[in-house]
Design a protein around this nucleic acid. Sequence first.
DNA 1: TGAATGACTCGAT
DNA 2: GATCGAGCCATTC
Length: 111
Amino acid sequence: MKPENYDFNHRVFDVVRLIPPGRVTTYGAIAAFLGSKRSSRMVGWAMNLSHAIDPKIPAHRVVNRQGLLTGKMHFSHPDRMQELLEAEGVIVCNDQIQNFNDVFWVPEIPL
DNA sequence: TGAATGACTCGAT
DNA sequence: GATCGAGCCATTC
């Protein structure tokens, strides 16, 4: 476990925590923000750890670039992700965000 | 040690 | 447009 690896995951968690309620972002956006846009898989893996760290990470606000809730099956309940999103005003239908263009949020270098 | 896997994305065909 | 293959890199077997 290198400090760099920890740093990567830590940054992912940091960015996800910055997502405003009612907004969502993509793995690619986070990966691009951290340096390599093709490292989206690492973001996904970091999300896998997100439920085991403190403070909790709003992983439900992270979807793939199509607006699909690809990670919903990793929640306590598969429908939990959709419930949380809808509770924040995000329209979800068939595991897909309808107003994705409206709620899409890009990490703008939270210096 | 090497190969496989994963909550992804992009460019080419 | 839809489909296919390659790239990314940490973790697991």
